[in-house]
């Protein structure tokens, strides 16, 4: 049976398999993997202790669309990624800290590459925070811990992420900071254009006062028209598809499909966002994954619009925002 989050946009009346067939007919532009900069492990599949209302892959306590990755499989794909010249490794889920071997996998990853783990930070007790700090110090590469927090207001955050989450996350951030770690707090953007300075100031105050985090690192993420979020925004969602014309003159490395791949227990996907899309599965293993992908989903436009925002620093920082022409300076 097709899970509910794999159905197409509200009103289409079609599951994504049928939409995938339509996609083939629409002749979407294809993007080639230029280089494997980022390798993602969906290490706990879609298993999560929370069920956030905007989760782009519909993860939750009983969601088994994807399962846990075996450490041996992670080791094998890490080896292949190194042979391909990988730059950075990311661990995501679901909630990665549900995996009993996560810390060992992070250590193995940090032996060969900079590593990031994305977490809801609700299951980071003192011994885990202490161990993470040890692992970070032992590596010459950065270990980034990306913690999700969606609002500086407890009620607004918990309405999205679950009751009591706000307090638990702040306690985890405090533990991480006490051990010398500087987590990247990632926030899904749901404020009007131009609202960043105020939001930034509120988060800065909150993290300083409640978590002792006096120089917070914040990362803003766009809302993703996928999974539960797609259901939530429903008919209002009208992102266009990426066209050949949009890609003309664009630096292709701004798109995640040109520099990333995602490993799951069910094969290799083009990127961590599209793991629910059957057409985005490129092969069993990195070694035999298809090198190109047709941009047939509306969320591809989000990536086009913001650059590779899933990285710790958006690639838009290193290049032109893809939708913005490099405007000449106006005459004074």
């Amino acid at each position: 049976m097709i899970p509910w989050w794999m159905w197409g946009p509200e009103g289409s009346g079609q599951p994504l398999e049928i939409l995938a067939a339509e996609k083939k007919r629409m002749n979407h532009p294809r993007v080639q993997l230029l280089h494997l900069d980022n390798l993602w492990f969906q290490v706990t599949g879609t298993f999560c202790n929370l069920a956030c209302t905007h989760c782009f892959n519909g993860s939750g306590p009983n969601v088994s669309t994807f399962g846990f990755l075996a450490p041996a499989d992670v080791e094998r794909e890490l080896g292949q990624a190194v042979r391909l010249g990988v730059r950075e490794i990311f661990f995501t889920g679901g909630e990665p800290f549900l995996h009993p071997a996560l810390l060992e996998m992070l250590e193995a990853s940090l032996r060969v590459a900079p590593t990031t783990v994305l977490t809801n930070a609700t299951i980071l007790p003192e011994p885990t925070a202490a161990r993470l700090a040890e692992i970070e110090r032992a590596s010459r590469y950065s270990l980034e811990i990306r913690v999700s927090l969606d609002s500086p207001e407890e009620a607004a955050n918990d309405a999205v992420r679950g009751l009591g989450v706000f307090t638990r996350v702040l306690a985890s951030i405090e533990r991480l900071c006490r051990h010398g770690l500087l987590p990247l707090v990632s926030v899904v953007r749901d404020w009007p254009l131009g609202g960043e300075p105020e939001i930034l100031a509120r988060f800065t105050r909150l993290l300083s006062e409640r978590a002792g985090y006096h120089r917070p690192r914040l990362k803003f993420l766009p809302v993703l028209p996928l999974g539960r979020e797609l259901v939530r925004i429903g008919a209002d969602h009208d992102e266009p598809f990426v066209t050949e014309e949009m890609l003309r003159g664009l630096e292709p490395d701004l798109l995640m499909c040109s520099n990333s791949r995602a490993v799951t227990d069910r094969g290799v996907w083009v990127c961590p966002l599209l793991v629910e899309m059957p057409d985005a599965r490129l092969g069993d293993r990195l070694a035999n994954a298809a090198p190109t992908y047709a941009l047939g989903h509306r969320v591809c436009f989000t990536c086009y619009e913001y650059g590779t925002f899933c990285s710790n620093v958006s690639t838009a920082i290193e290049g032109a925002a893809p939708h913005a022409q490099r405007a000449p300076r106006p005459e004074p």
Binding site: G85, V86, R87, P114, R140, Y141, S142, D253, E318, G319
Partner: peptide
């Protein structure tokens, strides 16, 4: 910045050996 992009940041802690060989 880097051979592939004028404004790519090559930090010591975010460049794996494998990537630098590439």
């Amino acid at each position: 910045g880097s051979p592939r992009k004028m404004n790519e940041f090559l930090w010591e802690s975010t460049c794996s050996d494998a990537f630098l060989e590439y």
